[in-house]
């Protein structure tokens, strides 16, 4: 009765009409989920949840990893910056302290205009416990000679015992072989300062009758031919008067901290021609 082609066309037309009707209805009226819809959602959603949570976990791990890498890089950068800041701060402190020392030395130079002074830097110390010497960076080329006194603004340091072209060795007054003819500033009592240790030295050959008190200042007498008169040596810290003997035993604490010496002055006894020029 009907050809196959006719049936197909009619079928397609019916399908189109049904499609339009269905879509029109469902687009306008969203029905409540029925049992089949619920079943479909309940079957698929757990898998969706599983996959989604796995992805989120992976994402979180990935993100955390990258943020950790970033933090590590930042940490490295900050450490480097901190080290630089420490270094800079240290340099500033060093400059400040050096400035203070140099100011003190300058002040000393200003107040001792009678002497010819050459500033020198300490470049080495004697490692031995028994010998108290140090090296400075000025030598014969700077006009330094054997026996020249070495001082700082706080007081006497020692004397030159050896020198080369640009370096000299200084025997410190705390060395056992060192001696300085000195006197007490207050009573003018004379004696000899002899080296003992880094912390103190002995003021020897002071007569028992001589008036000595703890805290008295000891200065150079200028009679030894090495150190000019009036340079500070130390203060009396201990007095021992024995029943026998004609001398007192006096301990003197030096003004100079020999452990922390960095810059010194070399005094020219007879003014050097080079300095005079």
């Amino acid at each position: 009765m009907f050809s196959k082609r006719m049936v197909t066309i009619v079928g397609v037309l019916i399908l189109i009409v049904l499609t339009i009707m269905l879509l029109t209805i469902t687009a306008q009226h969203r029905s409540h989920p029925n049992i089949l819809t619920r079943l479909a959602i309940n079957c698929v959603s757990p898998f969706q949840e599983l996959v989604s949570s796995s992805i989120r976990t992976c994402q979180q791990i990935w993100k955390n990893y990258f943020s950790l890498v970033a933090v590590a890089y930042e940490n490295e950068r900050l450490r480097s910056a901190l080290n630089k800041a420490y270094e800079l701060n240290n340099r500033c402190l060093e400059t400040q302290r050096s400035n203070e020392r140099l100011r003190a030395l300058l002040e000393f130079k200003e107040t001792n205009k009678a002497f010819q002074l050459v500033a020198a830097e300490v470049i080495g110390r004697d490692p031995s416990y028994w010998a108290k010497t140090m090296m400075i960076d000025k030598g014969e080329a700077d006009g330094i000679q054997k026996g020249f006194p070495v001082v700082v603004h706080r007081g006497i340091v020692g004397q030159i015992i050896e020198m080369t072209g640009h370096f000299s060795k200084v025997l410190l007054i705390i060395d056992q072989n060192s001696a300085v003819d000195s006197l007490l500033q207050r009573t003018r009592v004379r004696g000899i300062i002899k080296g003992d240790s880094t912390r103190s030295f002995f003021f020897e050959y002071v007569l028992r009758k001589g008036s000595v008190k703890i805290g008295d200042m000891v200065i150079s007498s200028g009679l030894d031919g090495v150190y000019p008169k009036g340079l500070r040596v130390g203060t009396v810290s201990e007095i021992l008067r024995s029943n026998s003997g004609i001398f007192q035993e006096i301990k003197v604490t030096p003004y100079v901290d020999f452990e922390k010496l960095e810059e010194v002055f070399v005094l020219f006894k007879p003014p050097h021609p080079a300095i005079q020029q």
């Binding site: 399908l15 499609t19 269905l22 879509l23 469902t26 687009a27 969203r30 819809t37 479909a40 698929v44």
Partner: peptide, 24 residues
């Protein structure tokens, strides 16, 4: 298509119909 429709927020039956027409 039905499962897709259930999970989708569009008009119900849209995926079913789309797939069906594509298929045909």
């Amino acid at each position: 298509g039905f499962i897709m429709d259930c999970l989708s927020g569009g008009a119900f039956g849209l995926y079913c119909i789309s797939y069906m027409w594509l298929y045909l």
